[in-house]
Amino acid sequence: MTDWYRRKKWTKSDEEEFFAKLGRARKDGRAQYLKIQAIELMYTDDKKLLSVAEILLNKMLVEYPDDIFNKGSALHTLGNIYKKFDNYKNAIDYYKQAMDFEQMFPNVKTQAYLDFSELIIKTNNTEKFIDVENILLERYSGLLFPIEKYKVNSILSIINKYKNKLDEAKQYAELAEENADCETSGLRYHKTLGVVKGKETWLEILKQD
C-alpha cells in the first residue's frame, strides 16, 4: 500500500485525505511530508500536478520556515519544477537559493549546484560560465559518483573550450569519458549506484562543437 504522502494523483478526495492525515501527524514531521508529496507529484511530469507540487512546497516554506533539514531540498525541488515548466529564470533563481542555503548549513546537501550548472550551460548563459566554473571546482575534490564526475568534467570541458583553453578542455573531456565508462561506483555494497547509464546527448554535442 502506498504511503499517504506519496500519492501519484491529486483528486479532491486525495487532497482532503492528505491534509486530514497531515493535520494528525507530528508537527515536526509535517514539513517533510509536504516535501515528499511534492516530489512524488513532480516526478509525474503532469503540468497540473506540477502546480500542486509548487503549492505544497511554498506552503512548507511559509509554514515551517525554521525546518533546516527540508528547506534546501524544497528550494532545489522548486527549481526542478520551474525547469519542467521551461521557466528557466525562476529555476536558476531557486537553484541559487538552495546553494546559498547550503552555504549557511553545509551539512544539508542537494544536487542544486549541478542542476544550476547544467541549466546555465544549456541556456548558453555565458555571463555565468565563470560562476559555474568556480562552483564546480570548489566541489570537485568531493565528487563521489561516476555520473557526477561525468557531468562536472563535461561542463568544465565546455567552459574551457569557450575560454579557448583547448588543452584543459580536452583533459576534462577525457576525464568525463573515463567516468562515463565506469561500470561500478566504487562503493562496497552499492556497486552500480551513481553509474552512468547513458550519456547526455546535449553535453556530448557541446563538448564536440
Rank of each mutant, 00 (worst) to 15 (best):
Y189V: 05
N153K: 02
S117W: 04
K47Y: 11
L75N: 00
A53Y: 04
S13H: 07
I121N: 01
D167W: 14
A180L: 09
K165M: 04
L136G: 05
N107L: 14
L187M: 13
K89C: 06
L137S: 10
A173C: 11
A173R: 14
L22Q: 11
A173V: 10
L119Q: 06
S154P: 00
N134M: 06
D14F: 12
I68E: 06
F69A: 06
K165S: 02
K199V: 02
E102D: 03
T77F: 07
N134W: 05
E133F: 01
K207E: 09
E127Q: 14
M60N: 14
D3P: 14
R26H: 03
E200M: 06
F69R: 06
K109Q: 05
L203H: 03
A20R: 15
D100P: 04
N160Y: 10
K83S: 03
D100C: 02
K59R: 15
V62T: 00
T110F: 13
L136V: 10
A98G: 02
G79T: 02
L206C: 09
M104Q: 08
S154V: 00
D209H: 08
L114T: 03
N124T: 08
I159L: 10
I205Q: 07
K48Y: 13
L136A: 04
D28H: 02
K59N: 11
K21A: 09
Y172Q: 13
E15K: 09
I155G: 03
K128N: 12
F69H: 07
D209Y: 05
Y5T: 04
I205C: 10
M99A: 14
L114Q: 04
D67A: 14
V52K: 00
K48N: 15
